[in-house]
Amino acid sequence: MTNHDEAAGVRPLTPAWVGRHLETGERIVATEALHGGITAEMRRLTIATRDGGIRDLVLRSFVDPFRVAQAEDALSREAGALTLLAGTGVPAPGLVAVDPTATRCAYPSLLMTHLAGRTVLDDEGLETRLPLLARQLVAIHAVRPAERPRKYVTLTTADTVVVPRGADAAAWAAAVDIIRKPPPRYEGRFLHRDFQPGNVLFDRPLSPSADARITGVVDWAAASWGPADLDVAHCSTNLALLHGPAWGPRFAEAYEEAGGVLAATKSERLYWRVRDGLACSEEVRSVARPWREAGRTELTTRAVEERLDAYVTALMDAPA
């Protein structure tokens, strides 16, 4: 629900900071909480312009005490990524301002332009969206930054994997053994590092038969340098959990059909896909919650755990 008190919903001190980055004569006239984020609080700020019009900005703030400790790195990295992406053709938000250490804001925050569109998480129309997602990821990996971002973070270890209740113990043990090994050699690419349907905006007409169009890719806080396989694996895992295990491998195929290049051998590809699937085992609850909030109420934590088990098992059972 939109709150038309310009200070409501935005923490004390923050409106003044935002105001310093607006055009002369502009002011905040409404704020609205945006749902779906896991690590940060997101708000859309409606700005009245001096000519009587309105425009929107998005405020990303790290509020949770546990997340605040990660805020400086995440917001600095996101600000760097948004600056790097300006003019590349990748539909990312534009950076307006950033206060990663809460020097002027109540919480570490980043202010950016608002992109039109919405996330689409339902099963209907996925066949149409899949190649669009793949082509967009290929375009992201084609970006050649003058200065490389930091190396990717793996997010899991063999000792922190959480095996779902009732899972195929043998398959999971074999999968864990895979990530005990050193990672395969790879050719580095610019990575989004959290590319998945929840971070892609579509301008989709109401008719399910109409072509969808991607209008934005958001949440660049984990942007990094690493193997293309890792971004593909992450989106594959999310598609498998959202729509069923068979959609994970289909995304990898769509990525290659779109011109993307993956690791040369099946064992190398398996390493990255298994690593990302196992990483998800540690955060099933936090992954499933925003999906339910977005309307996928059937995706309980248990349902997502079962899909993850089926996906990891299928990866391990695939022909070598």
Results as ranks from 00 to 15, higher is better:
A8I: 02
G9W: 10
A16I: 05
A16H: 11
H21S: 04
T24E: 09
R27D: 05
V29N: 02
I38E: 11
R44Q: 02
T46F: 01
A48K: 03
S61H: 03
F66A: 15
R67T: 10
E72F: 10
E72S: 13
A79P: 04
G80P: 06
G80C: 08
T88K: 04
G89I: 06
A92W: 01
A92C: 08
P93V: 03
L95T: 01
D99Q: 02
A102W: 02
H114Y: 14
D123M: 07
L133D: 05
V138I: 13
R144D: 11
R148D: 13
T160S: 15
V163H: 00
P164F: 09
D168G: 12
I179S: 09
Q196T: 09
L201M: 13
R204F: 14
L206G: 13
D211Q: 15
G216T: 11
A222C: 07
S224D: 04
W225C: 09
V232R: 09
V232C: 10
H234T: 13
L239T: 05
L239H: 10
G244I: 02
G244K: 01
P245Y: 03
P245Q: 02
G248H: 07
Y255G: 03
A263C: 00
E268I: 00
D276E: 15
R292C: 08
E293W: 02
E293C: 02
E293H: 00
A294E: 04
T297L: 07
V304D: 13
R307N: 01
R307V: 01
L308C: 05
D309F: 07
A314I: 07
P319K: 08
